[in-house]
Design a protein around this nucleic acid. Structure first.
Length: 453
DNA sequence: GCATGATCATGC
DNA sequence: GCATGATCATGC
């Protein structure tokens, strides 16, 4: 049934009309004046779809794209994974955060809610070199109406961001502050970028926008569905409460005890993922993170503390390539992306009796000052890789992070800018830094030291 | 006991 | 086969 047109007052009609784009690019369906394409790969595909496919020009720039239907139109990129399924290429930017006006808003009348309560999201296959009008739409368009199960979480994310602005800390905003909604950077990002004023501090803040995190987008796409059961976050439980309910019965118990209770045992004496597996069985009753934590992009990490209070090890992150980092920007680097996440630490400690027990569980995200220090280490690493990839920042050079090998064995070498081969490396958070962080999370079973009061 | 270098075990 | 999270090993 090919429809020639649609009813702009009807969400369903707009949705049906949009479906006819799937499998095609905008450019093959309608004529786009070349002046508007302009040889640029970037461009506002959403506006082009609205103007040339829907032939629709809203009377005003304010309000939804389709005011009569109360519908917002969004286009967003996906990339194909090796197994053929899709994942979000990036976060979905919803609307700029106006630091001046958000402090006077309430959720029910907020500009964010106006944007995201009803959206039609079209997915196109991202191809870097291809102009946006030539990118193919894939998947069915998604009619998004803020699901009940996500509403409370997104609302409290919004309130957290608002509170941070009210505390004069707009410049310290981080994606790790929140769960589904992120205060993402929006702007040139260059050295000369103009900072924005914030109402309760003289400090300039980088421009930010509300966005759905990539992890949340992936869940919407439905390509990462797992069988893991919901924790029940959102209805009447916070992340902290729901997590505490799962871990409470095991806190204080020994590894041995937990292992027996869950009937999960070490496969070998050197089973390196054992503590993590126990934690996942406690938290998720399985091997996958519960859907809420997956949607929030939570980074669950196990930390093992020795009798003397120090972590047994520093904390590693995925390896990087020498040839990549020299051309990367901090805010686009994978280390930055990791450190912007919210962490869930599952902490074990060996007691004076030599027995290791589950000590506590805590949510955490990296404070502003420490993110700046991590950036310094990253920039220093980038600089030194270009000079000599075998001489990189050691843990003695920073209180927060360092660089060390990360490989399968001594043959796991990759190319350096110097033309040689050297052991693959990754970033680590120092053991001493972790000690301070874990100590700072206090004694509670589940806390969140990122909270601002 | 710690910093640094080196490597393991697992799951996909 | 490979990335990943995590741990082991060595020398000071």
């Amino acid at each position: 049934m090919d429809e020639q047109s649609y009813d702009k007052t009807s969400v369903d009609s707009i949705h049906e009309f949009a479906k006819q784009l799937t499998g095609k690019s905008l450019g093959e369906v309608v004529y786009i004046p070349t002046a508007l394409i302009n040889d640029r790969n970037r461009g506002d595909l959403g506006s082009l779809v609205e103007s040339f496919y829907f032939q629709h020009r809203p009377a005003t720039n304010h309000g939804p794209d389709f005011p009569e239907a109360g519908l917002e139109l969004k286009t967003t990129g996906v990339v194909k994974k090796s197994d053929g399924s899709y994942r979000a290429k990036e976060r979905l930017v919803l609307t700029m955060i106006n630091f001046e006006s958000i402090v006077g808003e309430i959720w029910e009348g907020s500009s964010l809610l106006g944007k995201c309560r009803s959206m039609l999201i079209l997915f196109y296959l991202y191809r870097k070199k291809l102009p946006v009008v030539d990118r193919i739409f894939v998947l069915d368009p998604l009619l998004y109406s803020l699901p009940n199960e996500d509403l409370e979480i997104i609302k409290s994310d919004w309130e957290f961001i608002k509170k941070k602005v009210e505390s004069g800390k707009a410049h310290e905003l981080s994606e790790g502050d929140t769960f589904y909604l992120g205060a993402c950077r929006k702007g040139s990002g260059g050295e000369g970028e103009a900072l924005r004023k914030q109402p309760f501090s003289d400090e300039g803040a980088k421009a930010r926008a509300f966005s759905f995190k990539p992890s949340y987008m992936n869940k919407l796409i439905g390509e990462r569905a797992s069988s893991a059961k919901s924790l029940g976050v959102g209805q009447n439980l916070s992340f902290q409460e729901a997590t505490a309910i799962r871990f409470d019965p095991f806190v204080g118990r020994s590894i041995e005890e937990i292992s027996v209770l869950l009937d999960h045992h070490k496969k070998s004496p050197n089973h390196k993922g054992f503590h993590r597996e126990l934690a996942l069985r406690i938290l998720a009753h399985g091997k996958d993170l519960p859907p809420e934590l997956a949607k929030a992009g939570i980074e669950m990490k196990t930390v093992r503390i020795q009798q003397n209070g120090r972590p047994r090890e520093a904390m590693s992150f995925p390896g990087f390539k020498f040839l990549d980092i020299v051309n990367e920007e901090w805010e686009k680097s994978s280390f930055f992306e990791r450190l912007e996440r919210k962490f869930l630490f599952v902490v074990f400690q060996t007691g004076p009796d030599g027995i290791e027990r589950l000590l506590k569980v805590a949510y955490w995200n990296m404070p502003y000052e420490d993110r700046l220090e991590a950036m310094r280490v990253w920039e220093e690493t980038k600089r030194r890789v270009a000079l000599d990839a075998t001489d990189l920042p050691k843990s003695s050079e920073s209180l927060v992070a360092h660089v060390r090998p990360k490989g399968r064995n001594g043959n796991d070498k990759i190319a350096t800018p110097q033309g040689g081969m050297h052991l693959r490396q990754c970033f680590w958070l120092n053991a001493g830094y972790l000690e301070q962080v874990i100590g700072g999370t206090g004694k509670q079973i589940v806390g969140n030291n990122s909270s601002i009061t």
